[in-house]
Write a protein that binds this DNA or RNA. Structure first.
Lengths: 265, 265
DNA sequence: TAGTGGTCTAGACCACACG
DNA sequence: GTGTGGTCTAGACCACTAC
């Protein structure tokens, strides 16, 4: 192994070291699943204190390149990726997982009646802000890895009628099986760093990027029908580990609006 | 201020402290833009060492709640959000920025002819893997904040003909202005933590979540026309700061495919 | 010049995994 | 018991900002 991680310019030692280790991971000198030398040994190899090594390892963790296990060691991350299509935003999570070779499972953390927060009341088109809604939080597993936390709000009637099945199955599948046919959705996608609470639920380090898939799904109406006939059936968001999930879409545009360009310099 | 940040259970001190500070930020006790007490003062307030305070502040940085400035202090992050619509994935970045009240600007980092990497050759539907393509990297600013890094690949003819304008303007706008009309795109969205290099370009901490918008845009063809007539005009990806950007879509589904449910338990 | 965050050290104790 | 990563301390020096 190279001598000390002497910085070439004014780069901090911990960055120089983490970049060296990163290069070794990316060139395959360390392969996925392999254990790195212990913090103590790395300190000796690079000729720096354990604190500096820990900072360097922290850099790698933040970049998703390694994970640590107390008492066991530092391991190179094994890559995974599950793709969800946004072309049909009414994703049957369980179907997608099965298609891609995983066993999907949910663990319900909470299912209770609450007063709708303002945004939820608006999305579910309830008249009153404090109308009752069912609030569910569940963890979604692919095989035995927690990959997403789903937070969903159901109109009171739906939640009361499907209390049991909703706690045991995936949202869309369960709704459709029980006669609530979904045929439209409004979605958005953003990203957020894991908070302390989320990092515990999803077994990721603090700050790990999460994809936030916000959704409102509607029943009734349909493409031809007037928008008034459609009715929100559920809203919520799915926070998924970005190291395990991505979303794809293929969209054709008919006549791009060029007028918008006229206003630009 | 509260006495020492004594952990209630087995929570590490640095977590207890960062959660206390987080609560103060979220309740408005510290407001956006405000300076927190110095690391030394926080150490005295909570009765812990500066190392522990620095770890706690690091937790807040990873969650995007504060930023630090050497020699100046620790500041509560000011929230921003720019929405891009995926309903039309041919986003005119500059138009969206202007609509939302920002001055958009690009800084070209690189514009050069290279041999197409395998994936690029495939996306641009070039015959040979090593066919020449133009490779551009540019930073996109909203006012004076770098919010995204765009990496684009153009077929040789396009790049050669539009060498100057492509280096000064936004991709889609420039192409359309010069007669290359885009009318289809294939996109996907994922998220990734900022590497050391990206964190410097985008002025974010290492590991900050970035949204990765992958795209291939096509000219010719069109909705009715056969897919063969369409031709890739550009491919690449836009890595945008997740604290500044999100993507939205509204999609109606005609007849959800229920057969997929039959195979599930 | 004083104050701030950034880096780095040397050492201690703890909780957990494994043999 | 031994080795591992997780936490925490006390202190040093540096680079940068602001006055």
């Amino acid at each position: 192994m190279a001598p000390s991680g002497q910085a070439t310019e004014r780069q901090p030692l911990h960055v120089a070291i983490s970049e060296q280790l990163k290069a070794r991971i990316e060139t395959g000198a360390y392969i996925p699943g392999e254990r790195l030398p212990s913090e103590f040994d790395l300190g000796e190899l690079f000729g720096v204190s354990r604190t500096t090594i820990r900072k360097a390892i922290g850099n790698l963790i933040q970049q998703g390149l390694v994970t640590t296990q107390r008492g066991r060691g530092i391991f190179v991350t094994e890559p995974h990726k599950i793709s969800f299509s946004m072309a049909n935003p009414l994703i049957y999570f369980d179907a997608v997982l099965k298609q891609q070779g995983y066993v999907g499972r949910v663990q319900s953390l909470r299912f209770q009646l609450i007063s709708a927060p303002g945004e939820v009341a608006r999305k579910l088109e309830l008249g009153a802000t404090s109308a009752p809604v069912y609030w569910q939080e569940k963890i979604i597993y692919a095989d035995d890895t927690p990959i997403a936390l789903d937070i969903a709000y159901y109109p009171e009637a739906t939640g009361a009628a499907l209390k049991e099945p909703l706690q045991q199955g995936f949202t869309y599948s369960t709704l459709v099986r029980h006669g609530i046919h979904l045929n439209a959705a409004r979605v958005s996608l953003e990203s957020t760093p894991a908070t302390y609470e989320l990092s515990e639920y999803l077994a990721v380090p603090l700050g790990m990027p999460l994809l936030v898939f916000n959704y409102v799904a509607y029943q009734g109406g349909g493409r031809g029908a007037p928008a008034k006939n459609r009715q929100p059936a559920v809203c919520g968001k799915t926070l998924s580990r970005s190291d395990w999930t991505c979303y794809t879409a293929e969209i054709e545009v008919d006549a791009p609006d060029l007028s918008i360009l006229a206003e630009l310099p």
